[in-house]
């Protein structure tokens, strides 16, 4: 009885206040070994695949990667001149230069097994400089933000969780909106977009940086459906996240703004 009452109090404290967050962060340390244990078979399989790969497959993979690298390097050549141009133009406008973001490569070690919670666990924690609210990316786009940091791991709330929303803008015309998670791993909804707003199927949504939490310009989602009902004040806009929310294993934690200026943990490459 008493324990039930304590549990109820804990739930209410946790849902309606953030008093328990420091306690949770402290306690979360005991979960790290469990996730490490759960991750073990997966890592074993990876290791076996890596060490038992055939020569021809490795050669193929190597060739494919070289081709990809070449393509990216070509883009990067242009990038240098574009970046320089951007800096010049910004100086003309007297606005601040954009600082390139520093990243920390992390690996996914766990996924919340609760179907109603979209959270993942990464293998970097406060010892590596990870902080609350830090954005997480994969190769394709924005994945989510850190909501709980323990010493050696951190829990990340994905952008599709029902309790998550982030400010975005349409890349084509700069229209701002709020992308809300729906609890479905493949869907985000745009809130309060009037029927007259110029939004089309296939539009890319990028983070707008307005919430001061996510850095500007990272791809978030692609609009897949725009349903305009004249009888309703807002149109229903559905988008599909760009990030591979249920597949990515290697992810990037971004340091932007003031955090990047502080000398933190070294950015490491895999």
């Amino acid at each position: 009885m008493t324990l039930g009452a304590i549990a109820l109090t804990l739930i209410l404290l946790n849902v309606y206040t953030d008093l328990l967050d420091p306690v949770r962060a402290r306690l979360a340390n005991i979960t790290t070994p469990v996730y490490w244990l759960v991750d073990l078979p997966g890592r074993g399989v990876d290791w076996v695949q890596e060490s038992l790969a055939t020569r021809s497959r490795l050669q193929e993979e190597n060739a494919a990667m070289k081709a990809e690298l070449l393509i990216h390097k070509r883009k990067l050549q242009q990038m240098a001149s574009l970046a320089a141009e951007n800096v010049r133009l910004r100086r003309l406008l007297n606005s601040a230069e954009k600082v390139p973001h520093r990243v920390l490569v992390a690996e996914l070690i766990g996924v919340s097994s609760d179907p109603l919670t979209h959270r993942v666990v990464v293998n970097k924690g406060s010892r590596d400089g990870v902080f609350l609210g830090q954005p997480l990316l994969d190769a394709q786009g924005l994945m989510g933000q850190v909501v709980e940091v323990s010493d050696y791991s951190a829990q990340v709330l994905l952008i599709t969780d029902a309790s998550h929303a982030l400010p975005v803008q349409i890349n084509r015309n700069g229209v701002r909106a709020v992308a809300e998670g729906t609890g479905d791993l493949y869907r985000l909804d745009l809130r309060h977009l009037a029927n007259t707003v110029d939004v089309r199927q296939g539009d890319l949504l990028v983070s707008s940086g307005l919430g001061q939490r996510f850095p500007v310009g990272y791809p978030v989602a692609e609009v897949v459906a725009v349903i305009r009902d004249p009888g309703k004040p807002f149109s229903r806009v559905e988008a599909r996240p760009m990030a591979q929310l249920n597949r990515s294993r290697h992810v990037l934690l971004v340091f932007s703004g003031e955090e990047a200026a502080v000398p933190p943990a070294p950015a490491e490459m895999p």
């Binding site: 549990a7 306690v23 979360a28």
Partner: peptide, 19 residues
Amino acid sequence: CIQDLLQGTPLGLHAMALM
């Protein structure tokens, strides 16, 4: 409580359900 910490659900959820 440990299950709550593992799954990132509100602390006490599974404790209460198990009670």
